[in-house]
Amino acid sequence: TAELVANAVEHTAGDGPIELVLELLPTGCQVEVHDPDPAPPGDLTVPHPAEPDPWQEHGRGLLLIRTLSSSCGHRPTDSGKAVWFRLPVVPAQRRPVR
C-alpha cells in the first residue's frame, strides 16, 4: 500500500487528490490508489527483463507488488487512473490438539 501511495505522490502529474480505497472481499482484500494522472504505471503488469540494480535506491517497489500480490493492475477512472493489487486470505492454521 505504501509503495503505491509513494509512487502516486512521486510520479503523478496534476493537482488532484490521491485517494486510497480498501475493499474487503470474501477471498481477501483489494487495495487501490486513485490519482489524477491517466498515464499507466510502468512495469506493474509486465515483468522487467533485467533484475534491479542492487545499488539503486529505487526500482523494486512494483516488483515487490507483483511478487507478493495474487494479482495487480491498473484501470482508467473518470479523473485519472486506479492502480490496484489483491492479497488473498491466508487460511487459518490448525493447531495440534494437546
Rank of each mutant, 00 (worst) to 15 (best):
G80S: 08
A39K: 05
D37Y: 05
E32H: 01
P54Q: 09
A8Q: 04
P36N: 06
P88V: 08
H11N: 05
V31I: 15
E23C: 09
S69I: 07
H11G: 00
C29M: 15
H48M: 09
L64E: 13
G28S: 14
L25H: 15
P36I: 01
V5R: 07
S70V: 11
T12S: 15
L87N: 10
P38W: 13
T45P: 01
P26M: 11
L68H: 05
L63Q: 09
E51F: 03
P36K: 06
D15Q: 08
G59P: 04
T12R: 03
T27G: 13
L64W: 04
G16I: 09
L44C: 03
P17E: 14
P40H: 08
A8V: 03
P17C: 09
G80K: 03
D78N: 13
P41F: 01
R75D: 00
V46H: 00
V21L: 12
S69P: 12
L22C: 09
E10F: 04
L24Q: 14
G28K: 14
E19L: 14
G59V: 07
S70C: 14
R66S: 03
N7S: 05
T45C: 14
I18T: 05
D35P: 01
H58Q: 12
V21I: 14
D53L: 08
G61R: 06
C72K: 12
A39S: 08
P76F: 07
R86I: 08
L20D: 06
P41V: 09
E32K: 01
P26D: 15
T45R: 11
H74G: 05
L4G: 02
K81I: 05
H48A: 14
P36Y: 02
N7R: 00
G42L: 14
H74N: 11
L64N: 10
Q56T: 14
P54E: 13
P54D: 13
C72M: 11
P76K: 12
K81W: 02
R86Y: 01
R86L: 08
G73H: 12
V46S: 06
E23P: 06
A13K: 12
G14W: 10
D43L: 13
T27N: 11
E51G: 00
S79P: 07
P17M: 10
P47R: 01
E10Q: 12
V83Y: 00
D53R: 06
E32F: 00
